[in-house]
């Protein structure tokens, strides 16, 4: 789980004046689902393109499965879906995969297995142009799965899928990871990343702001307290845990403490004559963490 299979060092892509990726250092370890998270236009796709050798970096380095990006030896062990599926519209789904299987030196059995995995066997004989957006996306994932690659690089894999399709896709990705495949996926959907990823890298305006586990990114849990009078409650809490861990939010107190300390806090408040109406643990969502992080980023000009 700790062996890195994708590493980049100061990976940079400049288009004229604009830095699409700015000194990105990321590490994907074997067996994990790594979420590459960022708003649209943050540089996710550009970075993934560089990892696959589609785009040449302006500077910096990358190693994928021990190979430079785009090397044949590396690509044969990677399955990728980048920025929407690219297929021949006049061929059937099955024939499209057959063409790719020939390119990859695989047999047609691999094609049937891949169609089966994304639940497209029944529609494999229909032309690609007649597919719905979701089916096209699933065929894209099937193409990535051809030949059982060690590493899957999926750019927004749930794009265009309906809620059921999204759930199926997430389940498929988790299943693949459980079977030992490493998945590097990009997404702008925080909930999605939170559900299926082991680790995340957050990229904003081309810069990788943080790389950590989902739990670490969420940070410490806090406790919300509603009490009257609020000023007295705040004073009691400050005396107990220190001012830096107490904040006021929407007429309530937000305290950076473990949920296990709530009993002691409650007792102290009650003994000071404060009427406590609500005490509950609040878990910060990835969205909160993300918004806080992107705000910080905007406040500090680079």
């Amino acid at each position: 789980m700790t062996e890195p299979i994708v590493t980049t060092r100061a990976l940079t892509k400049r288009y004229g004046e604009r830095l699409a990726a700015d000194r990105v250092d990321l590490t994907v370890r074997r067996g994990e689902v790594y979420g590459f998270l960022g708003p649209n236009g943050a540089g996710k796709t550009t970075t993934l393109r560089m990892l696959l050798g589609l785009v040449r970096p302006t500077s910096g380095e990358a190693t994928v499965l021990g190979q430079p990006p785009g090397a044949s030896a590396g690509l044969s062990r990677i399955g990728a879906l980048i920025e929407g599926p690219g297929f021949y519209p006049y061929l059937t789904g099955r024939d499209n995969l057959r063409v790719l299987a020939r390119y990859a030196g695989l047999d047609d059995i691999a094609v049937e297995a891949a169609l089966e995995l994304v639940d497209l066997s029944g529609r494999g004989g229909d032309r690609f142009r007649s597919y719905s957006l979701g089916m096209k996306q699933r065929l894209g994932v099937a193409a990535a799965l051809l030949g059982d690659p060690e590493l899957l690089i999926l750019d927004e894999p749930t794009n265009g899928l309906d809620p059921n399709g999204m759930a199926d896709m997430r389940e498929l990705i988790r299943t693949l990871a459980d079977h030992g495949q490493t998945v590097l996926l990009s997404s702008h959907l925080l909930g999605e990343v939170e559900q299926i990823c082991d680790r995340v890298g957050v990229i904003v305006a081309g810069r990788l702001l943080v790389e950590s586990t989902v739990a670490d990114l969420r940070g410490q849990a806090s406790v919300l307290v509603r009490a009257e009078p609020l000023a007295t409650a705040r004073e009691v809490a400050t005396n107990l845990i220190g001012a830096e861990r107490v904040s006021t939010e929407d007429g309530a107190l937000r305290l950076s403490i473990d949920a296990s300390s709530t009993a002691e806090l409650n007792r102290a408040l009650v003994l000071s004559g404060v009427a406590v109406t609500e005490v509950r643990p609040v878990e910060r969502t990835l969205e909160d963490a993300f918004i806080a992080m992107t705000k910080t980023r905007e406040e500090i000009p680079s």
Binding site: L54, L75, I78, A80, G86, L100, Y103, A104, A143
Partner: peptide
């Protein structure tokens, strides 16, 4: 794009 990320 699809072919160039396949293998050859």
């Amino acid at each position: 794009k699809t072919i160039f990320t396949t293998r050859p």
